[in-house]
Design a binder for these strands. Structure first.
Length: 497
DNA sequence: TGAAATGTTGGGGCG
DNA sequence: ACGCCCCAACATTTC
């Protein structure tokens, strides 16, 4: 009997074994009734193929951990991860030649540069008689599946999500596929050469990633633990708690989702199974959480249909917006030294842990765009480099939403007041105290507005305001009321054109 | 998934 | 008892 040729499974942002359609398809290939042929799991590091958006520093730290985790999980079932460096097409060709593989399977990505690159690879391999097929592993619904009655992409979230849920009534997202059991992933005759994860040099040379490693467990196991925590402890109060940066009320699944360590179908079914067991008729928490998953779907829908939006505003009139060029203000924002405690806490949380609470993301983003009048693209770049969950679709939607220039965006005149937001969502100031420790001893009533504190209160709290000294805290770099007026005037200037 | 400005209402103090 | 004013509380509109 002819020995079946191996199948290569090309891993990218699908670093898991659970619910992995390409992996399952590979296992079924190549064999008759007696089972499949061998499977070669491959990861190729080719950041130069990611256009203007190669993985940022925080993403690389995460990837390092996630690749290690995937390799270890594969080894537990008798396989392993082959790691190579790009360029991708040449690397794949050489792998195919060395291993005599006859097929390449992968999970789809939706970034413009990835779509173009993957299409080239598919065509090139097919021209050489190699089977090449992609699968949906990253979304509940493909961006091209959900369309308006006029057969157009959606531009507003609510009808988009309603249409998605309606589609789910007809055809629920498929039941998640099982993990391959021990021995089911057949090893090839000989493994091709592989680099180690360390060889990719994803970790920073300067030691700054400790905070990320303390806060997170990259990999499928870490993702599963977070999903369990979500279902057991978070979902019930999610509708209110998700807005509280001083509480652990969010899912913290974003980096796991970005790297595909957790399947959205797995989430869908876990949440629905949980809701089925509930006695109460209102499911505000689970519904709100699924709507957040919906925003992620919407972001991918928009990126797929409007691939220029990572760089350019979706609403063209915003191309003429009179943004400022102010490197000093940008630096103060990046460093968390704007003088607004909630803003600074958020940016410091980001720097230390590679993540920021979503409510605070809205506040700091609004501050950059509206109080400082700096282009949203500058904020998007900073988030891209510092977030462990940096995701081109989500990041683009978030920034265009807050800047008012995107689909279904917040109107430009919606300007967050960082003091009000702080007092509303961090009422005891615990979030600020954690990340801006120099203000920790101020009373609750002053912690979001230290510049209003009387001299005596400052002295008692050991707070030194304004000076550049060690342990001092800056005065506001812009006055809120002035900045608000200035932002509204800038918008008028854009409209007048 | 805002905030500020402006408008309205109604209770209480007071002459 | 009555009208007037003040202003907090809430509603509406505007940015």
């Amino acid at each position: 009997m002819m020995k079946a040729s191996p199948t290569i499974v090309w891993f990218r942002q699908d670093l898991r074994l659970d619910d992995h359609p390409a992996l399952q398809a590979a296992m079924k290939r190549g064999g008759g009734s007696g089972g499949g042929g061998s499977v070669i799991p491959v990861f190729i590091w080719a950041p130069e193929e990611e256009g203007s958006w190669p993985p940022g520093e925080a993403s690389k730290v995460w990837l390092h951990g996630s690749l290690r985790s995937l390799d270890a999980d594969l080894r537990k079932i008798g396989s392993r991860l082959i790691i190579q460096r790009g360029p991708t097409l040449a690397t794949l060709r050489s792998l195919i030649k060395k291993t005599n593989a006859d097929a390449l399977l992968w999970s789809r990505r939706y970034e413009p540069s990835a779509i173009a690159r993957d299409a080239d690879i598919k065509k090139s391999l097919k021209d050489h008689g190699i089977e090449a097929e992609s699968f949906n592993a990253g979304l509940l619904f493909e961006p091209f599946e959900i369309r308006t009655k006029e057969d157009k992409p959606y531009l507003v979230f609510t009808p988009f999500w309603k249409a998605s849920l309606k589609r789910a009534e007809r055809a629920e997202p498929g039941e998640p596929l099982p993990r391959p059991a021990l021995g089911k992933l057949k090893a090839p005759e000989a493994w091709p050469p592989s680099l180690s994860v360390d060889d990719l040099q994803l970790m920073p040379t300067i030691e700054w990633a400790g905070g990320i490693q303390e806060a997170w467990t990259p990999g499928e196991r870490g993702a599963t633990i977070q999903l369990d925590r979500l279902i057991e402890n978070v979902l019930g109060e999610y509708d209110e708690s998700r807005n509280r940066p001083d509480q652990a009320g969010t899912s913290r699944l974003s980096p796991h989702l970005h790297f595909g360590e957790l399947s959205p179908r797995r989430i869908w079914h876990a949440v629905h199974e949980h809701v089925g067991k509930l006695k109460s008729k209102t499911h505000a928490g689970p519904e709100r959480f699924m709507a957040e998953i919906g925003w992620r779907e919407f972001a991918h829908h928009l990126l797929f249909h409007f691939p220029h939006t990572p760089e350019e505003p979706l609403r063209p009139q915003f191309a003429a917006f009179p943004w400022e060029d102010n490197p000093g203000a940008l630096l103060a924002w990046q460093r968390g030294r704007t003088g607004y405690p909630l803003v600074d806490a958020g940016l410091r949380e980001l720097w230390h842990t590679g993540w920021m609470h979503n409510r605070v993301r809205m506040v700091v983003s609004s501050f950059l765009v509206k109080h400082l009048l700096l282009p949203w693209q500058e904020g998007a770049k900073w988030f891209w480099d510092t977030l462990v969950d940096a995701d081109l679709a989500n990041n683009t939607l978030g920034w265009q939403w807050i800047a008012g220039c995107g689909a279904d965006a917040a109107p430009y005149f919606r300007i967050f007041n960082p003091v009000t937001q702080g007092e509303k969502f961090d009422p005891q100031g615990n979030y600020v105290r954690k990340w801006v420790p120099e203000l920790a001893r101020l009373p609750d009533s002053l912690i979001h507005r230290p510049w209003e504190a009387p001299m005596l209160a400052l002295r008692e709290a050991g707070v030194e305001l304004g000076s550049e000294g060690d342990g001092s805290y800056p005065l506001p770099i812009v006055d809120h009321a002035d900045a608000r007026k200035r932002a509204l005037a800038a918008l008028e200037a854009t409209k007048a054109r």
